[in-house]
Structure formats: C-alpha cells, structure tokens
Design a protein around this nucleic acid. Structure first.
Lengths: 247, 247
DNA sequence: CGCCAGATTGATACACATCAATTCTCGTGG
DNA sequence: CCACGAGAATTGATGTGTATCAATCTGGCG
C-alpha cells in the first residue's frame, strides 16, 4: 500500500497557512490563460497532515470511497479519473505539486485519484479540516478559492472535449502543462511528459493512436521538437498557441 | 436590459439562510446519481439580494466580465456557456430554480450566463458575500458545499463529453434533467425541454441534427414519447437508464 | 544482447458532421 | 377560428475526423 513518511502531529486545531485569504490578495491570472487547479502556498503540514508516498500507478483512493480526507500533492504527479462500467476512462485532471484534491461536501469521492509518477501526498482528515474551518474562517476562504479555480479549469476542459479538434486539444494540453510547470518553477521552452499516451488520450477524449499521430504531425510541421516520446521542445510556441486558440 | 423587481434592502451584514451547513446535514445523494449544481435552500433574499428579470436569450453576464456578484436562479432556466473565437459554443450547465452561479475567486467570470427562458435571478454583490462570510462562517461552508457539488457535476459532464456515444449522452441528459426537475418538485415520468435543439447540442457536444436523430430514434424504439418536439414522456425509463449507464 | 511494453505507422471502418431539402409547429393577424 | 409565415425540427445524402484493427518500430532494462 503506502508508507507514512512523516509523523502525524497531534496538534489539535492548528491554523492552516493559506495564501489568498484576504480579498485583495486574489489570484490575478487573466481569464483564458492556462488555468491550473488552484494551489495553496501554505502547507497542510505542521498541523495534522501525514505525508504518504505512492508508487507509479498506485491508487490513492477510489471513486465511491467515503470522502474522509483531503489531499495535497507534494511531489510527483497525480491524476483524477472516472470510469464507466465497461472500462472507458476519463481523466479529469493532472495535478502537480501544490495542487489539492479530494475535498468535497458529498459523502463519497466522485472520482478516483492515482499516482502518475511516484508521488508524495499530504493527507488531512475531513474532521480536522472542518474543525479548522470553524476556528479559522480564512481557511474556508482558501478552500473556496481553490475549488472555484478547479471549477473554472473543469469548464475549460468541457469546452475542449465538447468542441475542439484533436490537434487543438493536443496544442492546448501541451501549452497548459507547460504554463503550469513554469508556474511551479520548471524551465520554460521545454516540457517532460511524465504521463504515457494512454493517460494523455484519456485526458483529451482521444485514442493513443490519435495522440501519437498529432504529436508527430506537429513535430513534422516543426511546431514542436520531440527527441524522445516524452520530451517536448516548444520550437514555435506562437504557432502552437494559434492552434490552441479558443476562449 | 433588466428590471429590478425587488428592492435591495440595506441591511448591512445579515446572515444568509443556508441549509447543509452543519457537518451532519450533508447531501445524501449517492455518487453517480444525477448530480445537479447544488442548491441552497435558504434564499439570498431578506438580505442584500436584488431580484432581476431577464428575457429569453438575454445575457446575464459575459465571460470575461468582472466577477462582482453571485447569482441564484429564482424561476426559469439559465445556461452557462463558453465560446471559442470562431463561434463554437459549449454549454457547461443548465440551471434550475435554487441553483447558484457566478461565484468565483478569480477576477473575472470564466463563462457567460444567459436566460434560456424568461428567468428571475437574485443577485448579491461579492463584497456583501465576503462580508457575510467573515461574519458567518456557516455561509462559507454553504458556498463550499455548493461549489463542490458543481465540481462533481462538471466531472460527470467531462466523462460524458470525453467518452460517451451520442445515444448515451442524450439518455443521460434526459434522465439528469428529469431527476433535477423532480427534485425541484415537478412531476416525474415526463419532462419539458424548455431549451431548443441547439442548446442541447451545445451542452452535449453534438450537432442539432444528431440530437434530433437520436431523440426520434429513441421515440421509434419506444424508449420515450415525443408528442411535440419539447415534451418527453419516459415510457421505458429502465431501458433509458441502461443506455445512459456509465459511472 | 534480446526482450517487451509503449509508441508509431498504416489500412480501413464508422459515428457523427455537414450540406441540403422538406416538414412541422406555433405565434400572429385577418 | 383558420390561414399564413418563419423559425425550428426533422430527414436524407454524403463527407470526414477520429476510432479501430493490425503490424512494426523503439528504447530501456534485465
């Protein structure tokens, strides 16, 4: 299963360190720009957070599981996904360090969470979060901020799945990942695709063959470099952005 | 434009009447069941809410507008939509009385809101909401609850757009609308499609022709009755549910 | 060095889009 | 109350983007 790598401190109701809790400290990103699931700069940890480690492709929780905790990615990448009875899969988000997931007011999780790469994840029980919110209203604001960003990202994704062509989806995907990686401190101009073609396909509502064809077509056109299957160079970012246009 | 039909009372920081603010009063709907954008039973009104009236197809606000207020549908139906530069449209939600929209922590709205039918809508300024949340932590909880339900609904919608066939999308759509109408007190077993085929198509990521063909195909198969283009009878709900399967 | 999962590439199929007429439906005015 | 007209819906013929099926290639690893 998983290993607890940090001790769960017993501090009863410690305040969470949150950014963007004051109204004037709102997220300034413009609409239409790469919309990442919101990050909370402060960590859970130092309070009642346990840090868990998951192997590649290990499941963090399943859709339908009781929603008794909330999580934050510390390192690695996490995917959120939904499955149909007959095995079709839709990945609703790829999460990077700082991104939170699993919070819901419903009884059960409406999607499962899996580690794309080896990943470390902080976990805080829902009970503690509710305690925290009672004590510290700013914490509720932080969550609200996070979830509303995630909702905006989901809406972008809906437009992508409902109305964009395969080429547009790929271009958008590459640029979105790139922006988020940059925001997380990675160097711009290049991108490592840590997920495989099936993951990309299931995120974009395509097949692995179409993903592969589109990537290689972009490579042939000189829009991107693709020295290995998982290393993308943005040789002509402008042209890519024109392809991903929309909104 | 629009008419203010109710006066904006000047009560400075009145508490909002919210349901589901206590942890034990959580939404009990099971996962996978028709997931409507969350409703808050209590109204904005009695506080700083103005009730506005919009005509059919009138815009409530545009994507990109400054997000300075939050809204709740009082009567009629509202659609949320996003557009691409070249006019492709994705409707992200149809909202019924009780549903809230427009809350975000971002500077601007990430989708526009339009009246599908003539609609009455309550509007509360963001400043007032933030005041209210500072004063009344339960209100923040109510918003959190609402948005997390909307996020779950968006995830269902992603699976629909990314991985379901036209017939499955239509079946799901009809059943979802029906469940929500029932939850709002309408009679079960039948459904009035107040939106036109273009709206349905733009919600489901299809064309009007495909929507029409699928509906009439279901009619021919005896799955639904369709006496007029906008009145659906659920003659064999079980078979429809099997079609909409998933999750 | 050879295996093998993942990626690529090719040939073909098909679901849905597109283009193009009709045919309804319902509001309006005689 | 009925005829009219126009927008909406339906239906048909055809096109096409992506899926599917089927090899083949590649690169990391034992």
């Amino acid at each position: 299963m998983y290993a607890i790598t940090a001790t769960t401190k017993a501090a009863p109701i410690a305040p969470f360190a949150l950014r963007a809790q004051a109204p004037e400290a709102r997220d300034e990103r413009g609409a239409g720009e790469g919309r990442a699931p919101a990050r909370m700069a402060g960590t859970f940890s130092g309070t009642a957070a346990a840090t868990l480690k998951f192997d590649r492709n290990e499941t963090i929780y399943y859709e339908g599981d009781e929603a008794e905790a909330c999580y934050k990615v510390v390192s690695g990448m996490v995917r959120l996904c939904k499955l149909t009875e007959d095995g079709r899969r839709q990945i609703t988000a790829f999460l990077m360090p700082g991104d939170m997931f699993g919070w819901t007011d419903l009884e059960t999780h409406s999607f499962s969470a899996e580690a794309v790469t080896e990943a470390r994840v902080e976990k805080v029980s829902r009970a503690r979060i509710e305690d925290g919110m009672r004590t510290n209203p700013a914490m509720g604001r932080g969550f609200l901020s996070m979830i509303s960003s995630q909702l905006a990202a989901a809406h972008d994704h809906l437009l992508l799945l409902g109305r964009m062509t395969a080429a547009e989806r790929i271009a958008w995907f590459l640029l979105d990942l790139s922006k988020r990686a940059k925001a997380a401190g990675m160097k711009a101009g290049a991108l490592d695709l840590v997920m495989n073609r099936k993951d990309i396909a299931d995120y974009l509502g395509l097949t692995i063959e179409t993903v592969s064809r589109m990537l290689n077509q972009m490579k042939r056109k000189g829009l991107i470099g693709l020295a290995t299957p998982d290393h993308v160079e943005f040789t002509r970012a402008g042209a890519l952005e024109r392809l991903a246009m929309a909104a």
